[in-house]
Nucleic acid binder design. Structure first.
Length: 451
RNA sequence: GAUUCGAUAGCUCAGCUGGUAGAGCAUAACACUUUUAAUGUUAGGGUCCUGGGUUCGAGCCCCAGUCGAAUCACCA
Protein backbone atom coordinates (compact mmCIF):
# COMPACT_ATOMS: atom_id res chain seq x y z
CA UNK A 1 0.00 0.00 0.00
CA UNK A 2 0.95 3.64 -0.46
CA UNK A 3 0.42 6.40 2.08
CA UNK A 4 1.35 10.04 2.46
CA UNK A 5 1.05 12.24 5.46
CA UNK A 6 2.58 14.31 8.18
CA UNK A 7 5.11 12.82 10.57
CA UNK A 8 3.70 13.26 14.09
CA UNK A 9 6.07 11.29 16.29
CA UNK A 10 9.25 9.26 16.04
CA UNK A 11 10.73 6.52 18.18
CA UNK A 12 14.17 5.69 16.88
CA UNK A 13 15.94 2.57 18.11
CA UNK A 14 19.12 2.27 16.14
CA UNK A 15 18.51 0.42 12.93
CA UNK A 16 14.76 0.27 13.48
CA UNK A 17 12.23 3.01 14.09
CA UNK A 18 8.59 3.54 14.71
CA UNK A 19 6.82 6.71 13.71
CA UNK A 20 3.30 7.98 13.34
CA UNK A 21 1.91 9.31 10.10
CA UNK A 22 -1.16 11.55 10.13
CA UNK A 23 -3.48 12.33 7.24
CA UNK A 24 -7.04 13.62 7.02
CA UNK A 25 -8.39 10.25 8.12
CA UNK A 26 -6.27 9.90 11.22
CA UNK A 27 -2.98 8.41 12.34
CA UNK A 28 -1.26 5.15 11.73
CA UNK A 29 1.97 3.79 13.09
CA UNK A 30 4.70 2.93 10.61
CA UNK A 31 7.75 0.72 11.11
CA UNK A 32 11.02 1.41 9.35
CA UNK A 33 14.05 -0.84 9.18
CA UNK A 34 17.34 0.55 7.91
CA UNK A 35 18.39 -2.39 5.78
CA UNK A 36 14.97 -2.79 4.19
CA UNK A 37 14.73 0.87 3.18
CA UNK A 38 18.38 0.95 2.14
CA UNK A 39 19.13 -2.51 0.77
CA UNK A 40 22.51 -1.48 -0.76
CA UNK A 41 25.67 -0.02 0.77
CA UNK A 42 24.28 3.52 0.89
CA UNK A 43 22.39 4.00 4.15
CA UNK A 44 21.94 7.76 3.70
CA UNK A 45 18.17 7.61 3.32
CA UNK A 46 17.72 6.06 6.75
CA UNK A 47 20.71 7.41 8.68
CA UNK A 48 20.57 10.98 7.42
CA UNK A 49 17.28 11.73 5.71
CA UNK A 50 15.02 9.94 8.17
CA UNK A 51 16.99 10.01 11.41
CA UNK A 52 18.68 13.41 11.15
CA UNK A 53 16.88 15.62 8.67
CA UNK A 54 13.27 14.67 9.30
CA UNK A 55 11.32 16.53 11.94
CA UNK A 56 7.91 16.16 13.38
CA UNK A 57 5.61 18.04 11.02
CA UNK A 58 7.35 16.98 7.81
CA UNK A 59 5.41 15.29 5.03
CA UNK A 60 6.61 11.91 3.85
CA UNK A 61 5.35 9.25 1.50
CA UNK A 62 5.72 5.55 2.11
CA UNK A 63 5.03 2.20 0.54
CA UNK A 64 4.67 -0.92 2.61
CA UNK A 65 2.39 -3.59 3.93
CA UNK A 66 0.11 -3.80 6.92
CA UNK A 67 1.09 -5.96 9.86
CA UNK A 68 0.47 -6.27 13.56
CA UNK A 69 3.31 -5.49 15.97
CA UNK A 70 4.29 -7.66 18.91
CA UNK A 71 2.27 -5.39 21.14
CA UNK A 72 -0.69 -5.83 18.82
CA UNK A 73 -0.89 -2.44 17.11
CA UNK A 74 -1.80 -2.38 13.46
CA UNK A 75 1.07 -0.72 11.62
CA UNK A 76 2.58 -0.33 8.19
CA UNK A 77 5.90 -2.05 7.55
CA UNK A 78 7.69 0.43 5.29
CA UNK A 79 9.45 -0.86 2.21
CA UNK A 80 10.15 2.48 0.60
CA UNK A 81 10.33 5.99 1.90
CA UNK A 82 10.10 9.36 0.13
CA UNK A 83 10.62 12.74 1.68
CA UNK A 84 7.87 15.10 0.42
CA UNK A 85 7.83 18.42 2.24
CA UNK A 86 9.52 20.20 5.13
CA UNK A 87 8.17 21.93 8.20
CA UNK A 88 10.69 24.56 9.22
CA UNK A 89 8.81 25.56 12.36
CA UNK A 90 8.50 23.25 15.35
CA UNK A 91 5.00 21.87 15.69
CA UNK A 92 3.63 21.82 19.24
CA UNK A 93 3.71 18.19 20.32
CA UNK A 94 0.60 16.91 22.03
CA UNK A 95 1.06 13.56 23.71
CA UNK A 96 -1.56 11.15 24.89
CA UNK A 97 -1.12 8.14 27.13
CA UNK A 98 -3.08 4.92 26.96
CA UNK A 99 -5.76 6.27 29.25
CA UNK A 100 -6.29 9.15 26.81
CA UNK A 101 -4.79 11.79 29.10
CA UNK A 102 -3.36 14.71 27.19
CA UNK A 103 0.07 16.10 27.97
CA UNK A 104 1.52 19.37 26.76
CA UNK A 105 -1.70 20.27 24.99
CA UNK A 106 -1.85 23.17 22.55
CA UNK A 107 -4.57 24.93 24.51
CA UNK A 108 -4.10 28.67 24.54
CA UNK A 109 -7.21 30.03 22.80
CA UNK A 110 -5.40 33.04 21.39
CA UNK A 111 -2.76 30.89 19.72
CA UNK A 112 -5.30 28.33 18.58
CA UNK A 113 -7.46 30.98 16.88
CA UNK A 114 -4.57 32.92 15.39
CA UNK A 115 -2.92 29.76 14.08
CA UNK A 116 -5.91 27.60 13.37
CA UNK A 117 -3.81 25.60 10.90
CA UNK A 118 -1.64 24.44 13.80
CA UNK A 119 -4.68 23.82 16.00
CA UNK A 120 -6.17 21.60 13.30
CA UNK A 121 -2.98 19.62 12.79
CA UNK A 122 -2.47 18.98 16.46
CA UNK A 123 -5.97 18.70 17.95
CA UNK A 124 -8.08 15.98 16.35
CA UNK A 125 -11.21 17.00 18.26
CA UNK A 126 -11.04 20.40 16.54
CA UNK A 127 -11.01 18.74 13.12
CA UNK A 128 -13.97 16.65 14.24
CA UNK A 129 -15.97 19.71 15.29
CA UNK A 130 -15.59 21.25 11.85
CA UNK A 131 -16.45 17.99 10.12
CA UNK A 132 -19.65 17.92 12.12
CA UNK A 133 -20.42 21.51 11.21
CA UNK A 134 -20.00 20.63 7.56
CA UNK A 135 -22.25 17.63 7.92
CA UNK A 136 -24.84 19.78 9.64
CA UNK A 137 -24.92 22.17 6.71
CA UNK A 138 -25.00 19.27 4.28
CA UNK A 139 -27.97 17.70 6.04
CA UNK A 140 -29.89 20.96 5.94
CA UNK A 141 -29.11 21.52 2.28
CA UNK A 142 -30.32 18.04 1.39
CA UNK A 143 -33.48 18.56 3.38
CA UNK A 144 -34.28 21.84 1.63
CA UNK A 145 -33.56 20.31 -1.75
CA UNK A 146 -35.91 17.45 -0.95
CA UNK A 147 -38.59 20.04 -0.26
CA UNK A 148 -38.04 21.25 -3.82
CA UNK A 149 -36.37 24.51 -2.85
CA UNK A 150 -33.78 26.27 -4.95
CA UNK A 151 -30.40 27.30 -3.54
CA UNK A 152 -29.72 30.89 -4.59
CA UNK A 153 -27.23 33.70 -4.09
CA UNK A 154 -28.16 37.30 -3.39
CA UNK A 155 -26.11 40.47 -2.93
CA UNK A 156 -23.81 40.90 0.02
CA UNK A 157 -23.14 44.52 -0.90
CA UNK A 158 -26.44 46.30 -0.56
CA UNK A 159 -27.39 49.94 -1.13
CA UNK A 160 -29.93 49.62 1.70
CA UNK A 161 -29.62 47.17 4.54
CA UNK A 162 -32.72 45.47 5.86
CA UNK A 163 -34.40 42.31 6.98
CA UNK A 164 -33.19 42.50 10.57
CA UNK A 165 -32.57 44.90 13.40
CA UNK A 166 -28.87 45.60 13.61
CA UNK A 167 -26.15 48.13 12.87
CA UNK A 168 -24.36 47.52 9.58
CA UNK A 169 -20.83 47.73 8.26
CA UNK A 170 -20.55 50.54 5.77
CA UNK A 171 -18.32 50.69 2.74
CA UNK A 172 -17.91 52.76 -0.40
CA UNK A 173 -18.05 51.97 -4.08
CA UNK A 174 -15.51 54.16 -5.84
CA UNK A 175 -16.74 53.97 -9.43
CA UNK A 176 -20.32 54.78 -8.46
CA UNK A 177 -19.23 57.04 -5.62
CA UNK A 178 -21.87 55.64 -3.34
CA UNK A 179 -22.27 54.11 0.09
CA UNK A 180 -22.90 50.39 0.25
CA UNK A 181 -23.63 48.22 3.26
CA UNK A 182 -22.63 44.65 4.00
CA UNK A 183 -25.84 42.75 4.42
CA UNK A 184 -27.23 42.17 7.89
CA UNK A 185 -29.74 39.70 6.41
CA UNK A 186 -30.87 38.60 2.98
CA UNK A 187 -34.58 38.41 3.73
CA UNK A 188 -35.77 41.16 1.44
CA UNK A 189 -33.91 39.78 -1.57
CA UNK A 190 -35.19 36.26 -1.09
CA UNK A 191 -38.74 37.56 -0.88
CA UNK A 192 -38.22 39.37 -4.17
CA UNK A 193 -37.41 35.94 -5.62
CA UNK A 194 -40.68 34.56 -4.26
CA UNK A 195 -42.42 37.49 -5.98
CA UNK A 196 -40.52 36.44 -9.10
CA UNK A 197 -42.20 33.07 -9.04
CA UNK A 198 -39.92 30.60 -7.30
CA UNK A 199 -41.93 28.51 -4.86
CA UNK A 200 -39.07 27.89 -2.48
CA UNK A 201 -35.64 29.50 -2.15
CA UNK A 202 -32.87 29.29 0.39
CA UNK A 203 -29.42 30.72 0.87
CA UNK A 204 -26.67 29.97 3.35
CA UNK A 205 -25.45 33.48 3.85
CA UNK A 206 -22.66 35.22 5.65
CA UNK A 207 -24.21 38.23 7.32
CA UNK A 208 -22.38 41.11 8.96
CA UNK A 209 -23.39 43.07 12.03
CA UNK A 210 -21.37 45.90 13.43
CA UNK A 211 -21.91 45.12 17.07
CA UNK A 212 -20.18 43.72 20.10
CA UNK A 213 -18.26 40.48 20.15
CA UNK A 214 -18.73 37.75 22.69
CA UNK A 215 -18.68 34.01 22.85
CA UNK A 216 -22.06 34.12 21.10
CA UNK A 217 -21.29 36.87 18.60
CA UNK A 218 -18.87 37.27 15.73
CA UNK A 219 -19.05 40.30 13.41
CA UNK A 220 -19.65 37.96 10.48
CA UNK A 221 -21.80 34.92 11.00
CA UNK A 222 -23.78 32.43 8.98
CA UNK A 223 -27.50 32.11 8.68
CA UNK A 224 -29.61 30.05 6.38
CA UNK A 225 -32.78 31.72 5.27
CA UNK A 226 -35.56 29.74 3.63
CA UNK A 227 -38.77 31.00 2.05
CA UNK A 228 -41.56 28.71 0.91
CA UNK A 229 -44.66 29.94 -0.92
CA UNK A 230 -48.18 28.87 0.02
CA UNK A 231 -47.09 27.86 3.53
CA UNK A 232 -47.44 29.52 6.92
CA UNK A 233 -45.53 29.62 10.18
CA UNK A 234 -47.34 26.53 11.51
CA UNK A 235 -46.01 24.55 8.57
CA UNK A 236 -42.58 26.04 9.17
CA UNK A 237 -42.59 24.92 12.80
CA UNK A 238 -43.29 21.36 11.72
CA UNK A 239 -40.56 21.59 9.09
CA UNK A 240 -38.08 22.92 11.65
CA UNK A 241 -38.74 20.09 14.09
CA UNK A 242 -38.28 17.54 11.38
CA UNK A 243 -35.11 19.21 10.15
CA UNK A 244 -33.42 19.50 13.52
CA UNK A 245 -34.34 15.99 14.55
CA UNK A 246 -32.74 14.78 11.33
CA UNK A 247 -29.62 16.87 11.91
CA UNK A 248 -29.17 15.53 15.44
CA UNK A 249 -29.63 11.94 14.30
CA UNK A 250 -27.25 12.38 11.38
CA UNK A 251 -24.57 13.79 13.66
CA UNK A 252 -25.05 11.64 16.74
CA UNK A 253 -27.15 8.66 15.73
CA UNK A 254 -29.80 9.78 18.22
CA UNK A 255 -31.98 12.87 18.72
CA UNK A 256 -30.29 13.43 22.09
CA UNK A 257 -27.32 15.75 22.22
CA UNK A 258 -25.12 16.39 25.21
CA UNK A 259 -24.49 20.13 25.57
CA UNK A 260 -22.43 21.11 28.59
CA UNK A 261 -24.28 19.71 31.56
CA UNK A 262 -27.58 19.38 29.72
CA UNK A 263 -28.90 16.61 27.56
CA UNK A 264 -30.94 18.25 24.85
CA UNK A 265 -33.48 16.20 22.97
CA UNK A 266 -34.44 17.11 19.43
CA UNK A 267 -37.07 14.44 19.29
CA UNK A 268 -40.33 15.79 17.86
CA UNK A 269 -42.49 17.52 18.93
CA UNK A 270 -40.81 20.50 20.59
CA UNK A 271 -42.46 22.47 23.40
CA UNK A 272 -44.52 25.48 22.30
CA UNK A 273 -45.39 28.66 24.19
CA UNK A 274 -46.90 31.89 23.01
CA UNK A 275 -44.79 34.95 23.87
CA UNK A 276 -47.36 36.15 26.40
CA UNK A 277 -47.78 32.61 27.68
CA UNK A 278 -44.05 32.22 28.25
CA UNK A 279 -43.83 35.51 30.14
CA UNK A 280 -46.82 34.54 32.25
CA UNK A 281 -45.30 31.13 32.88
CA UNK A 282 -41.92 32.44 34.00
CA UNK A 283 -42.86 35.73 35.70
CA UNK A 284 -46.47 35.17 36.70
CA UNK A 285 -47.59 38.36 34.94
CA UNK A 286 -50.17 38.58 32.18
CA UNK A 287 -48.94 41.39 29.93
CA UNK A 288 -51.29 40.83 27.02
CA UNK A 289 -53.42 43.86 27.91
CA UNK A 290 -50.65 46.13 29.23
CA UNK A 291 -49.83 49.42 27.54
CA UNK A 292 -46.36 50.94 27.33
CA UNK A 293 -46.56 52.69 30.71
CA UNK A 294 -47.76 49.57 32.50
CA UNK A 295 -44.99 47.55 30.89
CA UNK A 296 -42.42 50.10 31.96
CA UNK A 297 -43.59 49.72 35.56
CA UNK A 298 -43.45 45.96 35.29
CA UNK A 299 -39.89 46.16 33.95
CA UNK A 300 -38.93 48.14 37.03
CA UNK A 301 -40.54 45.53 39.26
CA UNK A 302 -38.80 42.69 37.42
CA UNK A 303 -35.45 44.53 37.46
CA UNK A 304 -35.34 44.73 33.68
CA UNK A 305 -33.32 47.67 32.37
CA UNK A 306 -35.04 50.07 30.03
CA UNK A 307 -34.47 53.38 28.31
CA UNK A 308 -36.71 55.96 26.72
CA UNK A 309 -36.15 54.89 23.14
CA UNK A 310 -37.83 51.57 23.88
CA UNK A 311 -41.36 51.07 22.68
CA UNK A 312 -43.83 48.45 23.83
CA UNK A 313 -42.26 45.75 21.66
CA UNK A 314 -38.73 46.30 22.91
CA UNK A 315 -39.92 46.28 26.50
CA UNK A 316 -41.60 42.93 26.01
CA UNK A 317 -38.50 41.63 24.28
CA UNK A 318 -36.38 42.72 27.25
CA UNK A 319 -38.63 40.96 29.75
CA UNK A 320 -38.56 37.82 27.67
CA UNK A 321 -34.81 37.98 27.15
CA UNK A 322 -34.13 38.44 30.87
CA UNK A 323 -36.63 36.11 32.46
CA UNK A 324 -37.62 33.46 29.93
CA UNK A 325 -34.97 32.85 27.29
CA UNK A 326 -32.14 31.73 29.62
CA UNK A 327 -34.42 29.12 31.18
CA UNK A 328 -35.34 27.46 27.90
CA UNK A 329 -32.83 24.67 27.49
CA UNK A 330 -34.80 22.12 25.52
CA UNK A 331 -35.80 23.29 22.03
CA UNK A 332 -38.89 25.42 22.46
CA UNK A 333 -40.98 27.42 20.00
CA UNK A 334 -42.11 30.83 21.17
CA UNK A 335 -44.99 32.05 19.02
CA UNK A 336 -47.23 35.03 18.38
CA UNK A 337 -45.11 38.11 18.97
CA UNK A 338 -46.50 41.62 19.37
CA UNK A 339 -46.82 43.33 16.03
CA UNK A 340 -44.43 46.20 16.87
CA UNK A 341 -41.51 43.77 17.25
CA UNK A 342 -41.87 42.26 13.83
CA UNK A 343 -42.15 44.74 10.98
CA UNK A 344 -41.85 42.06 8.29
CA UNK A 345 -44.31 39.51 9.71
CA UNK A 346 -47.92 39.01 8.80
CA UNK A 347 -50.59 39.94 11.33
CA UNK A 348 -52.04 37.06 13.28
CA UNK A 349 -55.18 35.60 11.76
CA UNK A 350 -56.96 35.81 15.18
CA UNK A 351 -55.49 38.94 16.74
CA UNK A 352 -54.42 42.13 14.95
CA UNK A 353 -52.02 43.09 17.77
CA UNK A 354 -49.93 39.98 17.19
CA UNK A 355 -48.02 38.53 14.28
CA UNK A 356 -47.67 34.98 13.07
CA UNK A 357 -44.11 34.51 14.16
CA UNK A 358 -42.04 32.04 16.10
CA UNK A 359 -38.55 31.85 17.43
CA UNK A 360 -36.87 28.61 18.32
CA UNK A 361 -35.00 28.89 21.61
CA UNK A 362 -32.52 26.22 22.57
CA UNK A 363 -29.89 26.12 25.31
CA UNK A 364 -31.05 29.56 26.41
CA UNK A 365 -30.40 31.21 23.05
CA UNK A 366 -32.32 32.04 19.92
CA UNK A 367 -31.54 29.58 17.15
CA UNK A 368 -34.21 30.37 14.57
CA UNK A 369 -36.68 33.11 13.74
CA UNK A 370 -39.62 32.61 11.43
CA UNK A 371 -42.89 34.10 10.32
CA UNK A 372 -45.76 33.99 7.97
CA UNK A 373 -44.35 36.70 5.75
CA UNK A 374 -46.10 40.00 5.45
CA UNK A 375 -47.25 40.18 1.82
CA UNK A 376 -49.67 43.09 2.05
CA UNK A 377 -47.81 46.05 0.49
CA UNK A 378 -50.00 48.64 2.22
CA UNK A 379 -49.48 47.11 5.64
CA UNK A 380 -45.76 46.73 4.91
CA UNK A 381 -45.48 50.41 4.05
CA UNK A 382 -47.24 51.34 7.27
CA UNK A 383 -44.89 49.13 9.29
CA UNK A 384 -41.82 50.65 7.65
CA UNK A 385 -43.14 54.09 8.49
CA UNK A 386 -43.58 53.08 12.09
CA UNK A 387 -39.95 51.93 12.06
CA UNK A 388 -38.90 55.36 10.79
CA UNK A 389 -40.67 56.88 13.78
CA UNK A 390 -38.83 54.49 16.11
CA UNK A 391 -35.60 55.51 14.42
CA UNK A 392 -36.28 59.19 15.04
CA UNK A 393 -36.96 58.32 18.65
CA UNK A 394 -33.41 56.98 18.95
CA UNK A 395 -33.72 53.30 18.08
CA UNK A 396 -30.52 52.73 16.13
CA UNK A 397 -31.70 49.38 14.91
CA UNK A 398 -34.96 50.54 13.40
CA UNK A 399 -35.34 49.41 9.83
CA UNK A 400 -34.97 51.57 6.75
CA UNK A 401 -37.74 51.99 4.24
CA UNK A 402 -36.97 50.02 1.10
CA UNK A 403 -39.04 51.41 -1.79
CA UNK A 404 -37.94 48.77 -4.25
CA UNK A 405 -38.95 46.00 -1.88
CA UNK A 406 -42.36 47.64 -1.50
CA UNK A 407 -42.68 47.87 -5.27
CA UNK A 408 -42.00 44.15 -5.46
CA UNK A 409 -44.75 43.44 -2.94
CA UNK A 410 -47.09 45.70 -4.90
CA UNK A 411 -46.71 43.31 -7.83
CA UNK A 412 -48.04 40.62 -5.49
CA UNK A 413 -46.37 38.03 -3.30
CA UNK A 414 -48.05 34.73 -2.53
CA UNK A 415 -48.61 33.78 1.10
CA UNK A 416 -45.19 32.63 2.21
CA UNK A 417 -43.49 31.19 5.24
CA UNK A 418 -39.90 32.21 5.95
CA UNK A 419 -37.26 31.24 8.45
CA UNK A 420 -33.71 32.17 9.38
CA UNK A 421 -31.61 29.66 11.26
CA UNK A 422 -28.35 30.68 12.93
CA UNK A 423 -25.84 28.12 11.73
CA UNK A 424 -23.12 29.06 14.18
CA UNK A 425 -25.41 28.86 17.19
CA UNK A 426 -26.85 25.59 16.00
CA UNK A 427 -23.37 24.24 15.37
CA UNK A 428 -22.35 25.20 18.91
CA UNK A 429 -25.22 23.16 20.28
CA UNK A 430 -24.82 20.23 17.94
CA UNK A 431 -21.06 19.97 18.59
CA UNK A 432 -21.19 20.83 22.30
CA UNK A 433 -18.95 23.87 22.06
CA UNK A 434 -19.20 26.71 24.57
CA UNK A 435 -18.12 29.53 22.28
CA UNK A 436 -18.72 30.64 18.71
CA UNK A 437 -14.97 30.79 18.10
CA UNK A 438 -14.87 27.02 18.37
CA UNK A 439 -17.20 26.58 15.40
CA UNK A 440 -15.62 29.25 13.16
CA UNK A 441 -12.36 28.36 11.47
CA UNK A 442 -11.10 31.92 11.69
CA UNK A 443 -13.02 33.85 14.33
CA UNK A 444 -12.50 37.58 14.36
CA UNK A 445 -9.60 38.53 16.60
CA UNK A 446 -7.60 41.69 17.03
CA UNK A 447 -4.52 41.82 14.81
CA UNK A 448 -1.18 40.88 16.28
CA UNK A 449 1.25 43.67 16.94
CA UNK A 450 4.19 44.02 14.57
CA UNK A 451 7.45 42.42 15.54
C1' G B 1 -17.42 49.98 26.20
C1' A B 2 -17.12 48.23 31.91
C1' U B 3 -15.24 44.69 35.52
C1' U B 4 -12.21 40.45 36.87
C1' C B 5 -8.31 37.13 35.63
C1' G B 6 -4.13 36.04 32.65
C1' A B 7 0.78 36.74 29.44
C1' U B 8 7.90 33.33 31.87
C1' A B 9 12.00 28.44 26.54
C1' G B 10 8.97 26.03 20.19
C1' C B 11 4.56 23.68 23.55
C1' U B 12 2.57 22.82 28.72
C1' C B 13 3.64 25.04 33.17
C1' A B 14 6.65 26.12 37.97
C1' G B 15 9.07 30.16 40.42
C1' C B 16 10.58 33.72 45.52
C1' U B 17 8.96 38.75 51.87
C1' G B 18 12.04 41.88 45.83
C1' G B 19 18.65 39.32 45.35
C1' U B 20 20.18 38.38 38.02
C1' A B 21 15.37 31.84 35.82
C1' G B 22 13.63 26.06 36.41
C1' A B 23 11.04 21.19 34.93
C1' G B 24 8.71 17.92 31.32
C1' C B 25 8.06 17.49 26.20
C1' A B 26 10.36 19.39 21.66
C1' U B 27 15.49 20.47 19.51
C1' A B 28 21.02 18.91 18.94
C1' A B 29 24.74 14.81 19.91
C1' C B 30 25.78 9.62 21.17
C1' A B 31 23.80 4.53 22.10
C1' C B 32 19.98 1.06 20.85
C1' U B 33 16.49 -4.14 15.28
C1' U B 34 9.16 -4.37 17.70
C1' U B 35 8.55 0.83 20.30
C1' U B 36 4.10 3.44 21.60
C1' A B 37 3.83 9.63 26.75
C1' A B 38 10.03 4.55 23.92
C1' U B 39 14.53 4.50 26.99
C1' G B 40 19.65 5.94 28.80
C1' U B 41 23.71 9.70 28.84
C1' U B 42 25.02 14.72 27.40
C1' A B 43 24.21 19.71 25.37
C1' G B 44 22.05 24.21 23.65
C1' G B 45 17.92 27.26 24.22
C1' G B 46 14.87 33.24 27.67
C1' U B 47 14.51 41.41 26.02
C1' C B 48 10.14 36.76 32.05
C1' C B 49 4.12 41.06 26.64
C1' U B 50 5.56 46.72 25.99
C1' G B 51 6.83 51.48 28.27
C1' G B 52 7.55 54.19 32.59
C1' G B 53 8.19 54.39 38.12
C1' U B 54 9.74 52.79 43.28
C1' U B 55 14.38 50.34 44.95
C1' C B 56 21.30 49.46 46.01
C1' G B 57 18.61 45.66 43.20
C1' A B 58 12.10 44.14 39.78
C1' G B 59 9.88 38.21 36.26
C1' C B 60 7.75 39.51 41.27
C1' C B 61 5.67 45.93 43.94
C1' C B 62 3.17 50.69 41.60
C1' C B 63 1.26 53.40 37.06
C1' A B 64 0.05 53.40 31.83
C1' G B 65 -0.59 50.53 27.48
C1' U B 66 -1.05 45.87 24.14
C1' C B 67 -3.23 41.12 23.40
C1' G B 68 -6.38 37.10 25.19
C1' A B 69 -10.30 34.80 28.33
C1' A B 70 -14.64 35.08 31.45
C1' U B 71 -18.83 38.04 33.04
C1' C B 72 -21.92 42.30 31.87
C1' A B 73 -24.03 45.77 28.17
C1' C B 74 -25.77 45.73 22.42
C1' C B 75 -27.10 41.89 19.21
C1' A B 76 -28.00 36.34 16.44
Amino acid sequence: MKLAGRLMSRRIMGKASFAELQDAQGRIQIYLNRDEICPGEDKTLYNDVFKKLSDIGDFIGIEGYVFRTQVGEISVHVTSFTFLSKSIRPLPIVKRDEAGNVYDGFNDPEQRYRMRYVDLVVNPQVRETFRMRSKLVQTMREHFNQLGCLEVETPILQPLYGGAAARPFKTHHNALDMTLYLRIANELYLKRLIVGGFDGVYEFSKDFRNEGMSRFHNPEFTQVELYVAYKDYQWMMDMTEELLEKVAINLHGTPEVQVGEHTISFQRPFARFTMYGAIQHFTGHDISEMDEAALRNLCKELKVETDNSMGRAKLIDEIFGTHCEPKLIQPTFITDYPVEMSPLAKKHRDNPHLVERFELICNGKEVANSFSELNDPLDQRARFEEQLTMGLRGDEEAMMLDEDFLRALEFGMPPTAGIGIGIDRLAMIMTNQPSIQEVLFFPHIRPEKEG
